[in-house]
Amino acid sequence: MKSTPLQTALPSDNHALALGFSGTLGNIDAYISAVNRLPMLSHDEEISLSKKLRENNDLAAAQELVLSHLRLVVSIARGYLGYGLPHADLIQEGNIGLMKAVKRFDPDQGVRLVSYAMHWIKAEMHEYILKNWRLVKVATTKAQRKLFFNLRSHKVGLDAMTPAQVNELAKTLNVKQEEVIEMETRLSGRDIALEAPSDNDDEKFAPIAYLSSDMQEPTKVLEAQHYDKLQSEGLEFALTKLDDRSRRIVEARWLANDDGSGATLHELAAEFGVSAERIRQIEAVALKKMKGSLAAYA
């Protein structure tokens, strides 16, 4: 977390300290406890402070408005803990929304700040959740966002939704049944650590062990392509540089069968009417010449 919720929401001055903040609150539980002890504002006090902020840009009035509604942020953040994100981070994002609400609040509209601020607080938390809940975005349209934040409350228990429940939710939220099924599947999934959490032999088979592949590394791919080319075009090029007898010997000895069980020296010696040692010498010279041809081709 970049900073504590207290650091985001509160200037460090004597007024804040007098309201119960020591200036050294780093623990989330201590922060929540201190927030809940802050005094609430009456409707008249709220209007007076809001007008001071609008007409005179009174930052002390803005601070008091923010302080008195921090408990609202804590309460709203508690409702989003099911997404597995840090409580303190949710509060921090909500505090940003609260400050935006205080800045834009119009006391002449006859609406209490608490009602107006809820929209801004939830909007900031929603944005944070959608960006950080999973590495891959799970909701990109307005309808998908609505589905994302309503699916949990519409599900009954931990079992998968029945076709009737899927159909009902799709109609309620005005989305396709396929989108409901897909979102439920993604929400019910679990993040898995790529690396094993310990050196325990039973836990060493983490995804990183079987997801990684050296063969997909660019250099390895190029090497494999180069090798395949040498095995086909390069080999054919090298064979064309041999005389007929040398080519016949090399092909019979090494290229006749895929399992490497080619002709023997004695079989070729009988075919050409020479000794087995002479066949071995011709083969050695031919292979050396092919090696030079392959190097030139590469």
Rank of each mutant, 00 (worst) to 15 (best):
Y297N: 03
S153R: 13
L147C: 00
N27C: 10
A60G: 13
E184T: 04
A61M: 09
L49W: 02
I121C: 01
I249S: 08
A77Q: 06
W120A: 12
F237H: 14
H154V: 05
L59M: 13
L235E: 08
A164M: 05
A196Q: 02
Y297P: 01
L90G: 04
S275D: 11
Q92K: 12
A9I: 07
T264R: 06
G260P: 04
G260M: 06
A143I: 00
G110I: 07
A123N: 13
P86V: 01
L25T: 15
D106K: 00
E64H: 13
K176M: 03
A170S: 11
T8S: 12
N36M: 07
E233R: 04
R71F: 05
F205R: 10
L222D: 11
K289Q: 15
S293M: 11
L194T: 13
F105L: 04
E203F: 10
I121Y: 03
F237I: 07
M40W: 00
L59G: 10
K171Y: 02
S12V: 04
E236D: 14
V138Y: 06
S68E: 02
E178L: 03
V156W: 11
R186Y: 06
D159T: 15
A269M: 02
G292F: 01
L287N: 12
L10G: 10
A101N: 05
P39H: 00
A196R: 00
T219N: 08
G84Y: 06
L265I: 09
